[in-house]
Computed example of a mutant assay.
Amino acid sequence: MKHLMQKEVDKMKPVVVMTDSEKTQTDDVEVVHIPLIGIEKLPVQSDYLHRHYDWLILTSKNAVEIFFDNYSDVTFDRLAVIGTKTRKSLEAKGLTADFMPSVFDQETFIAEAGSRFDGCSCCLPVSVKARPPLHRFLAARGQVDRIELYRPVASQSAALRIHDMIVDGEVDALTFMSPSAVDAYFKHYQPVVIPVVAIGPVTKAALDRYRQPCVMPETATKEQMIAKITEMREWNEF
């Protein structure tokens, strides 16, 4: 009987498709994990090996993992990160960030940087698709090496699976954590009528370009995205 009651409770939870590459643990919603983007690691650029920098700046968990696997000989004095996931990945390696912006995007990083990067040498390991504002900001104040670590690879089969689930009424909400994931889905399919949650303003802007209505959490974390979905559910917004 207890097992049957638990199954009924589970049916009442909103079904949420998470489209990023990291598994999500939560009891608040039923998560269906369908990554829209994979990564292709790029060859090591030997010109950057054995260099020393004033700052190493990391903007994603993928950048942390690939950089320390492939560029372990690079040394640095201080670390800056964007996002709690990036910071936690560093902490798992026994490293501590010296600077992290209050909101997890390049624009806030730039706004809160002050003069700490002026006249400094910076290492910026990123995706091929990384947006340019941070690189431009650092280059205007000192010397920066932009090392391309990987390129995002869209999964058309994942997009099709999500589309089919939406058509069959099996999804209550859809989440996006990056513009690349937005492109991976909406280059093939029309805007959807179920609630869509963007992790932050950059991803929301990508959804806006496809005329897809969406909402954002107050803080750019997956936990807050889930909280936003459960709040909408309580207010009968879907």
Rank of each mutant, 00 (worst) to 15 (best):
I110F: 04
H50Q: 13
R116M: 14
Y53I: 11
W55D: 03
F99H: 03
E91P: 04
F104E: 03
E107Q: 14
R78A: 09
T59K: 06
F117A: 12
S89R: 09
A111D: 10
F104C: 09
T96H: 12
D73S: 15
V103F: 13
L42W: 02
F76T: 00
E107I: 04
Y48P: 03
E91F: 05
I110L: 08
E40S: 13
R51G: 01
T59Y: 04
A97I: 06
G94V: 02
F76E: 00
G83W: 00
F117C: 10
S89V: 00
K61V: 14
Q45V: 13
Q106L: 04
D77Q: 14
D54I: 03
D98Y: 04
T84G: 05
Q45S: 12
F104G: 07
S60E: 01
T59L: 09
I82L: 07
T86I: 08
A80S: 13
E107A: 12
V74N: 00
A111Y: 00
G38M: 10
E40M: 15
D47S: 14
L42T: 09
D73G: 06
K93E: 06
P43T: 08
K61R: 13
I66G: 00
F109C: 08
D77I: 02
F67A: 10
V64P: 00
K88Y: 04
E112I: 07
A80F: 07
V103E: 13
A92N: 11
L95C: 05
A113Q: 10
S115V: 10
V64Y: 01
M100A: 15
R87V: 03
A113L: 12
N70T: 14
L79R: 08
T75M: 04
L58D: 03
G38H: 14
K88N: 09
L95Q: 13
A113T: 10
P101L: 10
I82N: 01
V44P: 04
V81Q: 05
Y48Q: 11
K41R: 14
A97C: 12
L95M: 14
V64T: 02
Y71P: 04
P101W: 04
A63G: 09
D77W: 03
G83V: 01
V103H: 14
N70L: 09
S46A: 15
A113H: 11
W55I: 08
G83H: 00
V81H: 06
R116N: 06
K85W: 01
G38Y: 08
T75I: 05
I57Y: 06
Y71G: 01
W55S: 03
Q45E: 05
S115G: 05
E91S: 09
S115Q: 13
S89T: 05
L58P: 07
T86G: 03
T84Q: 13
A113R: 00
N70C: 12
F117S: 08
V44S: 07
S72T: 08
V81G: 07
G38D: 13
M100W: 07
E91M: 12
I57A: 11
D69R: 14
D98C: 10
A63K: 01
A92G: 04
F67E: 08
S115A: 14
W55H: 04
I110W: 02
E112D: 09
G38Q: 14
F68C: 06
V81R: 00
L79C: 04
E112H: 10
D69V: 07
Q106M: 10
P101H: 12
L49F: 05
Q106N: 11
S72N: 08
G94F: 02
